[in-house]
């Protein structure tokens, strides 16, 4: 219990943020309690939680999935369709969406876990791509195709609608992040959780010990997917609509960037990675249109207009020089030393 004290204190502190009329220049454009800033913070927290759900697969179980976006998109699209096209109540839609995410994860997980390693990555990518194509093709005019569609706000709980209620959305996102944190913490420390980490380290050894890695990997896959679906519902509340971007392969890749930049296989790493990435992605966009940047020569200015360029380069640098992610940056010195002293020929252990 004692070790939960720090996270709990952070959550309480963050929960009071909307009540403060704080102004942090350069970091935020407006005061902390303005709707714009709260919305950005809510997105950061949401993606922090989502990145952690992805890290459950990648960092803790060693499954490199390129299809995590699919389950997030299920959360966004199924809930939005249920409310807007079928006029269901929000809570009914949310429960239905979670069920869809759960069942889909079991079916697709069971198929894709038949292959391992890189083939698994490609298969999950293919399934996610199928979802993306489906959303793009706009069957029965449900998904709105390329433009997506806005959710029928009559079905949403009244206290989440409108700009004045942004702080409620912020609290929802905070609750989601805290929920994912607690679930992942509990799951990783449970006995299947230990098996997951053993699979990550050495799958063959787990098999030799008489355990079936397949079942455990499926458990991890389903749990991570359901958490992502829940994240999709939160995203729908925050943005008030579904858009095609959340279905794409690039979306999963950005999750991968978040987790690796922050640090894989550590709860704080993935979460901080998600928060930092989302924050940088939004603020770098603002920055590129600011006066300070527009006076730079075009060679420097042009790349700065695309946050993804900067984040992609940062990601490569992290992979090369800070393999544990930014939260383990203390070990960089050791790492650089090792790179510089490395012998020229180094083959893998075959």
């Amino acid at each position: 219990m004692k070790r939960l004290l720090v996270p709990a204190a952070i959550v309480v502190a963050l929960a009071f943020l909307p009540q403060l009329s704080l102004d942090i220049p350069y970091v935020f454009q407006d005061g902390v309690n303005t709707p714009g800033t709260l919305e950005l913070l809510a997105l950061c927290l949401l993606f922090g939680g989502l990145a952690l759900s992805y890290d459950l697969l990648f960092g803790f179980t060693g499954l490199l999935s390129f299809g995590h976006a699919l389950y997030f998109a299920v959360g966004v699209y199924v809930a939005a369709i249920a409310m807007t096209r079928w006029h269901w109540d929000f809570w009914v839609s949310a429960a239905f969406t979670a069920l869809v995410g759960f069942l889909l994860a079991i079916v697709l997980g069971a198929v894709s876990l038949r292959v391992a390693g890189i083939a698994f990555a490609m298969v999950t990518l293919a399934f996610a791509q199928a979802g993306s194509i489906l959303a793009l093709k706009n069957p029965y005019k449900w998904t709105g195709g390329e433009e997506g569609f806005g959710v029928d706000y009559h079905q949403l709980p009244a206290w989440t609608v409108g700009i004045l209620n942004t702080k409620h959305l912020y609290w929802i996102a905070l609750a989601y992040a805290a929920f994912v944190f607690v679930v992942v913490r509990w799951a990783v420390n449970s006995s299947p959780g230990h098996v997951w980490q053993a699979i990550r380290e050495n799958e063959l050894r787990v098999q030799v010990l008489g355990l079936k890695p397949y079942t455990y990997k499926l458990m991890s896959y389903v749990l991570a997917s359901v958490l992502a679906t829940a994240g999709g519902i939160v995203y729908l509340l925050l943005l008030g609509g579904a858009n095609i971007d959340v279905t794409t392969a690039s979306f999963t890749l950005t999750l991968l960037l978040m987790v690796v930049i922050g640090g894989t296989g550590s709860r704080w790493g993935a979460m901080i990675g998600g928060i930092l990435y989302t924050f940088a992605n939004h603020r770098l966009g603002d920055l590129s249109s600011s006066h300070a940047v527009s006076s730079l020569p075009s060679v420097i200015r042009t790349p700065l207009q695309q946050p993804l360029f900067i984040l992609g380069v940062l990601f490569i640098l992290v992979v090369f020089f800070v393999p544990g992610g930014l939260t383990r940056i203390g070990q960089v010195g050791v790492r650089l030393d090792r790179i510089l002293r490395r012998p020229a020929v180094q083959e893998e252990r075959a």
Partner: peptide, 9 residues
């Protein structure tokens, strides 16, 4: 992956 995203951007 990083290269793909960065160059496309």
């Amino acid at each position: 992956v990083g290269l793909a995203l960065a160059v496309t951007a």
